[in-house]
Design a protein around this nucleic acid. Structure first.
Length: 576
RNA sequence: GCCUCUGUGGUGUAAUGGACAACACGACAGUCUUCGGAACUGUAAAUAGGGGUUCGAUUCCCUUCAGAGGCACCA
């Protein structure tokens, strides 16, 4: 028997007994409390269809199964409690089915096929090359990375793309500041990470601008020169830009994310013009008196939007219209996901509406994955004023903290070993922290208090994994076949079993909802249930039969924790 | 001004049209010659206020209050 068939067979059973009802979806879920059984059918929705009282339906069903109809082997008993029908599974079979499946499928356990052979395109990160990444980018990167992994795990062919913001007035600010006050310094000469070096001039510009408001005009002139292809300005741009991108790529490497395809705004900023001119011919948009091309979306509860400036140059949405078209042609995605913070909700509504009006039917496959902003205790992150939580900085700080923790436990560890573990633990803590919130939720980040290595944290799960590994290592001889699952069945073991059983559903839900926090919350629960078990029961100092069965069970817990964390881009450690 | 989103114990979060609202931090009280205490056990503590829909609402609708974001020829 396969795990996924357990629910199916139960539904078949009910369908045999009940009068024929078409298109009814049976909801069979685990009940809230252990003593209520292993799975529950609520009879309210059934009551509506059958036009009977839910209590009576439950009672009738339970009585029929007791007498007239024999239960299959894997069901122990079925009880009616008020309007609920509680199903108690036969434990030996249940343990066997679940444990065998995890043993057989290993790290494929939980994977699905719902997106098999589908192309999923995910655009994320979108850095500016004038400054380093901050905490908000980290949330974006980790969220996207996990979503991409989840889709792959469900069979999709995922393409990750990055649209680099490498042109525009903000870039010119860094460029101008460097030209004026850079004195020919380089990241090498200053021994700085190159994106931080560039960011320094962006901050410098803001400072100088306060005293000299004329600077912004100079920056704007520089932008015009850049667009005209002035060789000196272009050379400066290339230099600054390379530094920015180099440093940002180092951060990506550090945090373990990557991309299959890069787009640069400097290449594609004109790419929507043709589409807009075509639309103009079809009267889908119009030319204003001053020559700007505009579209009126008032009929759709949106505002007017300029698509091209009076002088014919592109605005931001010009490029996004072009890029959407380009991506569709290049990848023909089943879903095209844009991971962008919620401050741009309105913008994406506008973009998608324009694409729809322009007649692109594939816009229905475009999806803005919106996530809440990351705030500091004192408000929105403003990189111009230096009030940022810099990504590299916070990772470095967390690594220091992790090192201290490790050394307090293992004073004799080699420095290399300490750093390696510290990196995995620090990133684990940071990633898990940012992923345990549902994406829509804003995060108020308190640098001192937010991230911990205890409680509902990444390191808690890493620790649980390491603890299991430690037991497995001490077990020496492990019997993984011929397990007698009948010896398992105490409450803590059953709680673990229930959670292992629903792992595939959690994966599916996390994917379908674009919400890794389901997975994060699930893993915490699994870790807790294991630790409760651990404190109440022995694994090694029991008779051989029981020991072998428990070893399989806890090994499976470790396998699922590892898989779940890996999907979130978090590594595990055998020792920590 | 207009639009959108969010209000859950002291704090940070979870759940979801269904059985008693879950977890963590903090507080208090414990576990400690143990297979790793980055752990576990227990106690106190919450669905912003008011209406409505429903057999049933923390969840859906309206409203008041509070907070955030947006309404660029910036990207």
């Amino acid at each position: 028997m396969k795990m996924e068939n357990i629910k199916k067979e139960i539904i078949d059973l009910f369908e045999k007994v009940l009068p024929k009802i078409s298109n009814f979806e049976f909801k069979i879920e685990p009940p809230p409390k252990p003593d209520m059984g292993d799975l529950t059918l609520e009879c309210f929705s059934l009551a509506k269809v059958l036009k009977k009282q839910p209590e009576k339906i439950a009672k009738n069903l339970s009585e029929k199964f007791g007498k007239k109809i024999p239960l299959p082997d894997f069901i122990d008993r079925i009880e009616a409690v008020g309007p609920y029908l509680n199903i108690f599974l036969e434990k030996r079979t249940w343990f066997k089915v679940v444990c065998q499946e995890i043993l057989n499928r290993k790290d494929e356990f939980g994977s699905g096929r719902s997106f098999i052979k589908k192309n999923i395109l995910i655009e994320y990160s979108s850095p500016n090359t004038n400054k380093p990444q901050h905490l908000g980018h980290l949330r974006n990167n980790f969220l996207s990375w996990t979503i991409a992994n989840l889709f792959s795990f469900n069979g999709a062919k995922v393409t990750k793309v990055n649209l680099v913001n490498d042109r525009g007035i903000h870039i010119c600010k860094s460029m101008l500041a460097y030209q004026k006050w850079g004195e020919g310094k380089t990241p090498e000469s200053e021994k700085m990470k190159s994106d931080h070096f560039v960011g320094r001039y962006y901050v410098l510009f803001s400072e100088k601008e306060k005293k000299d408001p004329g600077l912004i005009q100079e920056a704007q002139n520089m932008l015009i020169q850049w667009e005209e292809g002035n060789s000196e300005v272009v050379a400066l741009w290339q230099k600054i830009n390379e530094w920015g991108i180099k440093g940002i790529k180092e951060t990506y490497k550090k945090i373990g994310v990557d991309f299959d395809h890069w787009y640069f705004e400097s290449d594609i900023y004109d790419s929507g013009k043709k589409i807009i001119m075509k639309a103009l011919k079809k009267n889908l948009c119009y030319k204003r008196e001053d020559g700007a091309i505009e579209i009126d979306l008032k009929n759709y509860n949106l505002d007017k939007k300029v698509l091209l400036r009076p002088n014919g140059t592109s605005v931001y949405i010009t490029q996004d219209i072009g890029l959407a078209y380009l991506k569709h042609g290049q990848f023909s995605p089943h879903k095209s996901i844009y991971v962008v913070a919620s401050e741009q909700d309105y913008y994406f509504k506008t973009l998608f509406k324009i694409l729809e009006i322009f007649g692109f039917k594939w816009v229905k496959d475009c999806y803005h994955l919106s996530y809440g902003m990351v705030f500091l205790p004192y408000g929105k992150m403003k990189s111009r004023e230096g009030e940022i939580v810099d990504a590299d900085e916070i990772i470095a700080q967390m690594e220091q903290l992790a090192k201290r923790e490790i050394l307090s436990r293992n004073a004799n560890l080699s420095p290399i070993e300490v750093s390696q573990r510290a990196e995995i633990i620090a990133l684990g803590a940071l990633k898990f922290f940012l992923l345990k919130f549902t994406p829509e939720q804003e995060i108020r980040f308190n640098p001192q208090a937010s991230i911990s290595f205890e409680g509902d944290s990444g390191p808690y799960l890493q620790y649980t994994y390491a603890r299991i590994q430690s037991i497995l290592e001490k077990a020496e001889q492990k019997e993984m076949t011929k397990i007698d699952y009948a010896v398992l069945g105490n409450q803590e073991e059953i709680e673990i079993l229930k959670l292992l059983f629903i792992f595939p559903e959690i994966i599916k839900k996390s994917t379908d909802d674009y919400n890794p926090s389901h997975l994060a919350q699930y893993l915490l629960k699994l870790g807790q249930k294991f630790n409760e078990f651990y404190h109440q029961h022995q694994v090694l100092k029991v008779n051989k039969k029981l020991k072998n069965a428990r070893l399989v069970l806890i090994q499976n817990v470790a396998e699922v924790i590892k898989k779940g964390l890996n999907l979130m881009g978090i590594e595990v450690l055998k020792k920590m």
